[in-house]
């Protein structure tokens, strides 16, 4: 296998890990964002939390593995991107910690104020985590102030301007909608009806953000469409994306929430593919001088390592997928509270 092909395969595999993460952790971040708005009393809050109870931890592993794979396959991209997003990334880490412990500790003590603190923590950390993931994506897409030797020459404020923030809000609305559909499938009765009302509103919010960010990208990131112009066949991605978006209300209307969830997962997949199409063959372009950018070619590991890692992935990924399916099968159906619940 040639070095070029290995590099491309690893670019795709990173995409697979990122899509796996966004589709899976997307719904549990969304559930966290919705938590204070759909659950009225303590029992409902526990139901909402326990809908993701057995699943969130495994979902987060996709991000951890993405980090490890980026480190191994494209060390320069790992080093440059994470040291550039220093504050934002540490805040994201704090949020991920906050989510984990809010879930774990909330229901361990029978005190309303104790539980309220963790409820707030769960919401805030879920919301901020989703926002920051989007902000990071927006910055990578638009390019960053990279100076010579891959050194970031900007500051936190350079990362928090209108465009990445819009992408952040798009991510929040997308995950909230995705989470709402998931919650709809896992709940019943009054709680489910409340969730259903939210889905419509969240869909409209997401659709609005989707249109706004599309226009904003057209204006602010003109190079994002370069690959579409070069390979017109790739237009299939944005078209499929739009169809998947429209299919969500259709599936909900047909009374097929599973199909709606599949559609919103497809929306996430298509958006991630669009992101990949927009940045390829770069990871981050430099807004200072194009020569300073991080590309697939200057960020990759040696061919030997990419090959070893591919063997690891070929052995590992089928195992991962098979027991992920088993776990989701075991915990299928409506969420119930039992002695082991959070």
């Amino acid at each position: 296998m040639s070095y070029e092909l290995l590099t491309f395969i690893w670019f795709l595999l990173l995409g697979v890990l990122l899509i796996g993460y966004s589709v899976l952790d997307g719904f549990d971040l969304g559930v966290g964002i919705l938590h204070p708005f759909v659950a009225k009393d303590d029992r409902e809050r526990r139901l909402v939390m326990n809908s993701i109870g057995p699943l969130w931890d495994g979902n987060e592993v996709w991000l951890v593995t993405f980090g490890g794979a980026l480190f191994a396959a494209f060390p320069n991209a790992y080093a440059t991107v994470f040291s550039s997003f220093y504050e934002a990334f540490h805040l994201l880490l704090a949020c991920l910690i906050g989510r984990a412990v809010s879930l774990e500790f909330r229901s361990k003590v029978h005190s309303p104020s104790w539980r309220r603190v963790w409820d707030v923590g769960f919401f805030v950390s879920s919301f901020v985590a989703a926002l920051l993931l989007g902000v990071a994506g927006g910055n990578v897409l638009a390019g960053m102030k990279l100076g010579p030797d891959f050194l970031y020459a900007g500051s936190l404020l350079d990362q928090l301007y209108w465009y990445p923030l819009l992408v952040g809000l798009l991510t929040v609305s997308l995950f909230a909608m995705h989470g709402a559909i998931f919650l709809y499938m896992k709940t019943e009765g009054e709680l489910q009806q409340r969730v259903q009302k939210r889905i419509t509103k969240l869909f409209l919010a997401f659709a609005a953000m989707y249109v706004i960010v599309t226009i904003a990208t057209w204006i602010h990131v003109p190079h994002a469409t370069d690959n579409l112009k070069r390979y017109p066949v790739l237009w299939i991605v944005p078209i499929a994306n739009a169809l998947a978006v429209l299919n969500i209300p259709r599936a909900m209307h047909l009374g097929r929430p599973g199909y709606a969830f599949f559609s919103s997962a497809m929306v996430i997949l298509a958006l991630a593919l669009l992101f990949a199409v927009a940045i390829f063959p770069n990871f981050v372009i430099s807004t200072i001088d194009p020569a300073f950018g991080v590309t697939l070619e200057n960020a990759r590991s040696s061919a030997g390592t990419l090959r070893n890692m591919l063997i690891i992935a070929v052995i590992g990924i089928p195992c991962v997928l098979s027991y992920t399916v088993v776990i989701y099968w075991i915990f299928r159906g409506k969420v119930k509270l039992d002695p082991a619940s959070y």
């Binding site: 980090g67 490890g68 480190f71 191994a72 040696s302 390592t305 890692m309 992935a313 590992g316 195992c319």
Partner: peptide, 17 residues
């Protein structure tokens, strides 16, 4: 990265999942 990263990625794929 070429060395250490592989071990970390393998940890993710083989152990964490």
């Amino acid at each position: 990265g070429d060395v250490f990263g592989s071990a970390l990625a393998a940890e993710g794929i083989f152990a964490f999942f």
